[in-house]
Structures are given as structure tokens and as C-alpha cells.
Design a protein around this nucleic acid. Sequence first.
DNA 1: CCTTCCGTTAGGCTC
DNA 2: GAGCCTAGCGGAAGG
Lengths: 246, 246
Amino acid sequence: MRLKEAAEKLREGIRSRSLIVLTGLMEVFYEGRASSSLGEGERLLLIKQDGSVLVHRPTGYEPVNWQPPGSLISVIVKDGVLVIEARRLSPEEILRVVVKKVYSIESHKLEDSADFAMHATEEEMKRAILLEPSLIEEGFKPIEDERRAGRAGFVDIFGVDSSGNLVVVEIKRRNATSEDVRQLVSYVKEIEKELGRRPRMILAAPGVQRSASRELAAYGVEFKCLSPKRCHEILKRGRGLEEFLG
Amino acid sequence: MRLKEAAEKLREGIRSRSLIVLTGLMEVFYEGRASSSLGEGERLLLIKQDGSVLVHRPTGYEPVNWQPPGSLISVIVKDGVLVIEARRLSPEEILRVVVKKVYSIESHKLEDSADFAMHATEEEMKRAILLEPSLIEEGFKPIEDERRAGRAGFVDIFGVDSSGNLVVVEIKRRNATSEDVRQLVSYVKEIEKELGRRPRMILAAPGVQRSASRELAAYGVEFKCLSPKRCHEILKRGRGLEEFLG
DNA sequence: CCTTCCGTTAGGCTC
DNA sequence: GAGCCTAGCGGAAGG
């Protein structure tokens, strides 16, 4: 395909805020927070309706180069090549794609307003525990979620156990690491400073990394096995019940 | 386009290990480490030569759903829809794309063997310091890089200053956080245990977060302002000199 | 296999 | 805007 024709199609696609898909032979340069260069090769260039730009190689999940939404895109033909530049300010970054040959170019005006629902997240694990506190242990009563722990940050759930002890629960959707243990401990230190009582520490996660299990013991942190999937099931059940009652 | 025809094109593209680009009206379901669902909408489906699958909405940098390289892909037409499933084992995950209408489908056999060079990384910052230790301070002499610090991990650079004090340098390509300070301190504790001398601690980064600057003072960690870009420039200069001399 | 750590992490949220 | 944290993080390197 002639480059001038391709440039015109690109400009028209950008003007009409379409999704543009171009395949061809290109070089890619990036300069900004870091910098990179990628020599000649056959790739796919995607320009989205919101100014996102992605360069994909023929393999691999990740784009090799990109520019996030909102970048300003220019298209010029010069010295026998087609140059597409995407700039953003703050951070100031520029992506330059130098296209030597265009194999195909398509543009589509796509309409997509469906909403995306993600489940079995850490957020759902928290909601499941608030709905069904015995997931942590019998008699556990949540008092606050997202309680501030001084300078250290926020704890996921703050509550009391059946004997009236304070309890701090930290939730992870993946196996707990020693870093997670240290974080929980530092939260609890802050809370102890504030309230004068040392809360119990419970780490709720689907498992523990080996290195973390040593630290659990060392710091007196308790572990409660809890998977994101199980929490998701519990919420579904609860929701089903709600719908049934409502 | 007829779905049967589309299915045949997809199968042929997968068989021939081509890059496939499909646009159409589709629903998407994912189940694995988490789960998600996305109702009907117009999107772009990318199937790469290595079995990566990406579903892109018309806006945004990230794919809304995906499957990494190596997933097994099946294509069937059933009940008037085209269903593309991508499975992977370990973790067991499945991505199901239900295509109701196909607007376009292309497949390309792309050849791309160029190598990708990334600059101004943390690794380059380290190499710049090893080449030009005065970037840390006059008289600094690196002894080892990636020295083990007991259980705590590895320090970026280990050396001595002009007075013979041990020095541990931790490098970050972004502003240093309080977590970075704590990490450096824990490395140094391990090294002190091992060698019986407490090294100086230097955090080299383009800047410090406010919360971290408090901790710098508290733990006696020194800060050396150093940007990835400057390090990249120094390496380029050094390399230029090498080429000139060679 | 597991663990650790980097990344132009991105993206979301709060202050 | 800066800071903080999560993510189906992905990917690489090392044990």
C-alpha cells in the first residue's frame, strides 16, 4: 500500500475517533521516563479512539511499546517513510513509529458500553468477611473496615473476638509473603501506640509462602486460610438470598 | 461475515501460526485465579502466533481480558454464535469469547527478529555507578555488586568510601519510598551481623517521597540524587569513548 | 518448581 | 498533583 494513502487513512481514522489497526514493517523509538529502540520488524500498530497507542510484536502478551490514553498523535510522510508520533505531557514522553511498509490498515468505529464485572478480588474477600465474620473465626465481630493505622497505612478489617480482644485482619488474594507479615505487624504497632492495647493479628489468604511462615511464628501472627473463590461463592449465595427475600 | 466462514479463517490462522485480528460484537467470560464477565459490545480480538489472546475494548491501554502465551485455543460454531476458548493449565484458567457478529477478520504471518533495547533502567544506573563511582561521591570504591545480605536479599552495590568505611548503595529508578529505606536498613543489619561493622547506607534515586525523607533521617540513611537519564548519558559517553579508542 | 524483584508497571483511590 | 496500594499484574533471573 502506498504510504501517502495509508497516512490519509490514518488521519481520517484519528479525526473520526476510530480504532485503527495497521500491520507493516516498522521501527519504534520511545523516549520519556526511560527510552528504548526497536529495529525493523513486522508488527501490529493499534491506535485507539481515546489516543492510546500500542505496538505489538507477533508474539507475547505485552505490547513492546505504547502510549497511554490521551496522547496527541501526529502522522507525517517524509523521506519515503510514514512516521506516527504519539506525545504526552507529564510525564513528557514521545513514541515514534517509523513505518517502512504498510501491509494492511483498517479502521472501525466500535461501540462498547457494557460494564465489566470482576469477581474473586481482594475487595470481594473483604465483603464476604463483613457479611459472614465467622469466616475468620466464630465470634469475630468487625468494627471498622479500612481503619487508619497511624502513619503505617490502613488495615483491611478491624474488630473484636469473642473474648473482647482487638483483632486486625489483613487480607490477601494470593499467598501471603513475609512482606505482608511485616506490614501487618507495623500496622498493629501503630494501633497499639494509639490505643494502648496490642491487637491479635490475623492474615487471611489462600496460603503462605515458606519464608513467610517463619515470620508468622516469629511475630505471633495468626494465619487463616481463605480463598478468593470461596469468598465469591459466599457473596453469590448471600446475594441469591437477598433476591429471594426481596 | 458468516460465522462458519469466520471460524474457518480462525482455524486456518491458528494452524498456520499467524497473527489474527478480529473485530466484532462479542461477550467475554474469564474464570481462573479470579473470574469476570463482560456483556455484549464491539471489540477487537487478537490471537497471536504463540497462543496469546487479547481482548481490547475501543478505549484504554490495557486489554480487558487476555490469556498469556502458550494457551490452547479452540474455535466452535454453535447455536448461531462463534465461541473461541483459550485454556491454560497451572494456573488453570479459561477465557471464553462468544462472538455474535464478525465485522472483519485478518490474519498475517509476521516476521520480527529485531532486538529490543531498553535504556535508563535501574540496571543501567548500576552500570553507570560502577563505571563512574564518583556519581555516589568522591573516593567511593565499589567492591561487589549484588552482594548477598543474609536472609534479607541482595544489595545493589557494596563498597568503601575514602575513609575506609563500608558503604551499601541501594538504587531506585523512581522516587525512593519509605519501604525502600526500610529495605536498605534491613540489608545493612544483616551485613553488620556478618562483618561486625555497620556500613554507611546510601539511597541513590531521582528523588524521595515525603514520607520517606522522615525515615531517611530516622535511620541515618543518606540520599544521593541520581536520575536514570543521567546514568544513561554517562554510559553512552563511556561507550562512545570506547569506540573511539578501539 | 518456588521466590524475589523490576516495570515507561497501569489504574484506582484518597488527600 | 503526590502518595499509597492492588493486580487474573507479566516477565526475568536465580535457587
